[in-house]
Design a binder for these strands. Structure first.
Lengths: 212, 212
DNA sequence: AGTTGTTTTATACATTTGTTTGAGACAAAC
DNA sequence: GTTTGTCTCAAACAAATGTATAAAACAACT
């Protein structure tokens, strides 16, 4: 059982594939691209992972695990706090993990699946996205004092998520001066902004329909 | 100069291409896909548009024009109103145009460019996105009484846009019960929610930094 | 040293895809 | 009816791409 050289190229393939899949999406990345980046032979992907999709599935699985890690970290950070404070901390952790370069691949992959679903979508949703949405739904339902199934709750959750994701660097934002250096201070600033904006929004939506 | 049959297949190509490019993105759509959908020969694209990119550029140009139409409509709808009311109406028009099936191709294309830029990106940003962002920036700057160049303004603009876009149907949202029938009533509901949420958010952000 | 199981490599194959070409179809002008 | 300019079509080409294969390299164990 060789564990030095085998896992080396296998790992290099995974690393390279994660980067490339996140940056360009499943379809637009070539097996040859991955192998070149991983300094491996063209046949390496098929040998180690069966086929291109097999490799993608493994990449996605590790992304899901990372996502769970973020979920847990945020939950812990907010333990014992008020719902509003929990939401605030969730956003902070979230922003840092999503927007720190190098850690961003996870959410880039989610973004890719949102626009171009692959057979790996189901696992991602069930194991990664749903738990997150359900936690956030609980928080927001508590804040506006309604059932977690209330239509407004999901809309608020989506609103929070969408705001954060919109800070992922993209060529349109870059051209509009929406760029920033991902320093801890700047990320804190973003997190604070999103939290402020969102919490006020949530309260407003809660009030609005009560008043109806 | 024949204008009956020529423009017929040319138009069919444009129509089919718009749909397909919006749904799958430039790279993932095949010239053969487009031609099949338009009931045209494989060579038709190259004959009428030079190459695949030429066709895409024309599709993008008509998308930009549609975008300008939306901008103008929203501007008119808000003429003479308060900044807050202008924002409210902008969101309403925006939501209706973006989320009415069939009219959604424009923003799907923008979304595509955001994730997978093509050489048509510059035109899109300068002629379509920038005017919109600048109008919204003006509104929000007025609401929170600061310079339109203030960092918070752009963040709010992005927040509003991101929320709306997040209602575009996508497979992840679908699996999470975030689906809705795009009836006028439902779209009104969404617009109201986003407006309520965002305006409260904008005010909060305006207050927060004043208090620093 | 020899055997065995695993990994790497070069090469090949079948599809797919954007594009080209040359012949034909068509309609209007003469 | 012939010519002319424009469009359509079937076929072909070259490049790219996912995958397969068979030989070689390698490491561990006897």
């Amino acid at each position: 059982m060789t564990t030095s050289r085998d896992t080396e190229t296998r790992d290099r393939l995974l690393k390279a594939a994660e980067r490339l899949f996140a940056d360009r999406g499943f379809k637009k990345v070539t097996v040859r691209d991955i192998c070149r980046a991983a300094r491996a032979n063209v046949a390496a992907v098929n040998y180690h992972f069966g086929d291109k999709l097999g490799l993608y599935r493994e990449v996605m699985q590790s992304a899901i695990d990372a996502m769970r890690g973020t979920n847990d970290a945020a939950r812990e950070a907010g333990a014992g706090q008020s719902a509003e404070e929990q939401l605030r901390r969730y956003i902070a952790i979230f922003v840092h993990r999503v927007l720190t370069p190098g850690n961003d691949t996870v959410h880039k992959l989610i973004n890719r699946e949102m626009n171009d679903p692959t057979p790996a979508l189901d696992t991602l949703v069930e194991q990664g996205v749903r738990p997150r949405v359900e936690y956030l739904s609980g928080l927001i339902a508590e804040i506006i004092e309604c059932a977690p199934t209330d239509q407004r709750v999901l809309r608020c959750v989506a609103g929070v998520q969408a705001q954060i994701i919109s800070y992922l660097p993209n060529p349109i934002a870059a051209r509009l001066g929406f760029a920033y250096k991902p320093t801890p201070a700047n990320l804190d600033g973003i997190a604070e902004h999103v939290a402020e904006f969102s919490i006020a929004g949530v309260h407003a939506v809660g009030r609005a329909v009560h008043a109806r």
